[in-house]
Computed example of a mutant assay.
Amino acid sequence: MKKRILLVDDHSIVRSGLRSLIELEDDLAVTGEAATGMEALELVRKQDFDVVILDISMPGKNGVDTLRDLQRIRPELAVLILSGYSEEQYALNLIRSGCRGYLSKDSGPDEIVKAIRTICNGRRYLSVELADLLARELTKPSDKRMHEMLSEREFQVFYKLASGKSPTQIANELFLSVKTISTYRARVLEKMNLRTNADLTYYAIKNELIN
């Protein structure tokens, strides 16, 4: 039986390219496509998939939030992040959040197919770049960048604050109280040794975490 794959990317040309690549393989099949995180969650509730290939930067519900929701509603579902951002920018945080692999969109077709098959077989896929990052984290944990020291939820709040969302907006999106979001904000600022939301935005832009 072919492994069922859901493509989640807001660019139709990216989905089309991935579909063409995957359909060359006898053991893989694209059985769903979504342009937004909300569409992806709706499909996952209705259909069975073996792997989700997920982008990070999408309108509305971004890939960071979508990954967290997928973990909640289908914890056994494997997720491969395929992003325009390099491994160094997001991979460690999202591996901690539950994705099974992380690839840059600059990766070659053979590596993308290899990653899908590895994940379908129940293993994590570590690119050379990601394996190097994990090795450096183990040998020199003090070399971590500031956002890599945040917990999963702190990183989620950091990403939204840096993107310009208010605590009220974030509270509504995450179904938490404004007070709780303010607590997370204070922790994030303290851990990152920053003072304001503008500092968070500047940090995110400088480190190419947001465009």
Score class of each variant (00 low, 15 high):
Met1Glu: 03
Met1Gly: 15
Met1Ile: 07
Lys2Cys: 09
Arg4Val: 03
Arg4Phe: 05
Leu6Lys: 13
Leu6Glu: 02
Asp10Phe: 10
Val14Pro: 10
Val14Glu: 10
Val14Trp: 15
Arg15Phe: 12
Gly17Glu: 15
Arg19Gln: 12
Arg19Ala: 15
Leu21Tyr: 04
Leu21Ser: 10
Ile22Thr: 14
Ile22Val: 14
Glu23Thr: 11
Leu28Asp: 12
Val30Gly: 02
Thr31Glu: 09
Gly32Arg: 14
Gly32Phe: 14
Ala34Phe: 15
Thr36Asn: 11
Gly37Ser: 12
Glu39Asn: 11
Glu39Arg: 15
Glu42Cys: 14
Val44Leu: 03
Gln47Gly: 14
Asp48Arg: 14
Phe49Lys: 13
Phe49Cys: 12
Asp50Trp: 12
Val51Gln: 03
Val51Ala: 02
Leu54Pro: 14
Asp55Thr: 07
Ile56Asn: 09
Pro59Gln: 07
Lys61Cys: 09
Lys61Ala: 09
Asp65Leu: 15
Asp65Val: 12
Asp65Glu: 11
Asp65Pro: 12
Asp69Met: 10
Asp69Ser: 14
Asp69Thr: 13
Pro75Asn: 06
Glu76Gly: 15
Leu77Lys: 04
Ala78Glu: 12
Val79Cys: 02
Leu80Ile: 05
Leu82Phe: 14
Leu82Val: 06
Ser83His: 07
Ser86Ala: 15
Ser86Leu: 09
Glu88Met: 05
Gln89Ile: 11
Tyr90Ser: 05
Leu92Lys: 15
Leu92Gly: 02
Leu92Trp: 12
Asn93Phe: 13
Leu94Pro: 01
Ser97Thr: 03
Gly98Trp: 04
Gly98Met: 14
Cys99Phe: 04
Arg100Thr: 01
Gly101Pro: 02
Tyr102His: 05
Ser104Ala: 14
Gly108Asn: 06
Pro109Asn: 06
Asp110Lys: 07
Glu111Met: 03
Val113Met: 07
Lys114Gly: 07
Ala115Ser: 08
Arg117Trp: 08
Thr118Pro: 00
Ile119Met: 00
Cys120Gly: 06
Asn121His: 11
Gly122Cys: 05
Arg123Thr: 00
Arg124Leu: 01
Tyr125Glu: 00
Tyr125Asp: 00
Leu126Asp: 01
Glu129Ser: 11
Asp132Met: 13
Asp132Trp: 10
Leu134Phe: 13
Leu134Met: 06
Ala135Thr: 09
Arg136Leu: 03
Glu137Ser: 08
Lys144Thr: 03
Arg145Ser: 02
Met146Trp: 05
His147Val: 03
Met149His: 07
Met149Phe: 08
Ser151Val: 04
Glu152His: 09
Arg153Phe: 13
Phe155Ala: 01
Gln156Lys: 11
Gln156Thr: 07
Val157Ile: 15
Tyr159Gly: 00
Lys160Phe: 13
Lys160Thr: 00
Leu161Phe: 10
Ala162Lys: 02
Ser163His: 04
Ser163Glu: 01
Gln169Tyr: 06
Asn172Ile: 10
Glu173Gln: 13
Glu173Pro: 10
Glu173Ile: 08
Phe175Tyr: 02
Phe175Pro: 05
Leu176Tyr: 00
Val178Phe: 03
Thr180Ala: 13
Thr180Met: 09
Thr183Arg: 01
Arg185Ile: 05
Arg185Glu: 08
Val188Trp: 02
Leu189Asn: 04
Leu189Tyr: 04
Glu190Arg: 06
Lys191Val: 05
Met192Leu: 01
Asn193Leu: 11
Asn193Asp: 04
Arg195Cys: 03
Arg195Leu: 02
Thr196Ile: 11
Ala198Tyr: 10
Tyr202Cys: 01
Tyr203Trp: 07
Ile205His: 12
Lys206Leu: 00
Asn207Trp: 14
Leu209Met: 03
Ile210Phe: 13
